[in-house]
Amino acid sequence: MVKVENLTVRAGNFEISDVNFEIPDGKYGVLMGKTGCGKTTILEAICGLKNVVGGKIFVSEINVTALPAGARGIGFVPQDGSLFTTKTVRKHLAFGPRVHGWKREKVAGRVKDLAEDLGIAHLLDRKPHGLSGGERQRVSLGRALAVKPGVLCLDEPLSALDEDTHAEMVDLLKRLTAENDITVLHITHSRREAEQVADLQFRIEDGKVVQM
């Protein structure tokens, strides 16, 4: 579950205030809004990447507002994938588990399972420069899922993909999040995309988040 109560976030001169919404356990929530309306700012605040001016953020009933990004149990997939240019796909998938101190065998097993699930097992020794847009997003998704987060935050994850890859990724996101009972906050400006994936739809209108 993700719940935001009276959240106020500031980014430079931009401020979005009094944001309230809730995505129940295992549900796929989509937040829409025009470019520059503050969608990404809200997502970053939930992930712990932006300081919160006021309000509270709950993940699975726990107030995580003051917790560091890595302690919130949230996986983050940025818009461009933001892969580590010097690391192989295998190292991307193993990154989180290693930081969390998993044993070597457990890390290797998780990497193998994830790679098969995401259809990237043949790419494990490749680096980001040799990957297509869709493959990059799969790796980015795998990296975020590796430590089995309860919540996944996706910042326009499909915006740069061609139509076929887009459709494949929609299926993949729906299947993986449903299978693993993950609560999702997905940001997009595309209504069509929202309709394809969402259980719940929210929209930012005049600086307020409203459920549709």
């Binding site: 970053e44 990004a69 983050f76 940025p78 933001s82 892969l83 980015s140 975020a144």
Partner: peptide, 22 residues
């Protein structure tokens, strides 16, 4: 891009570890 560091932080890295490993 600072984004890669931020991703590393969401995966459990401190700012220092994100700096050295990413």
């Amino acid at each position: 891009s600072p984004r890669t560091e931020q991703v590393a932080q969401t995966l459990g890295c401190s700012r220092a570890r994100a700096f050295f490993s990413v």
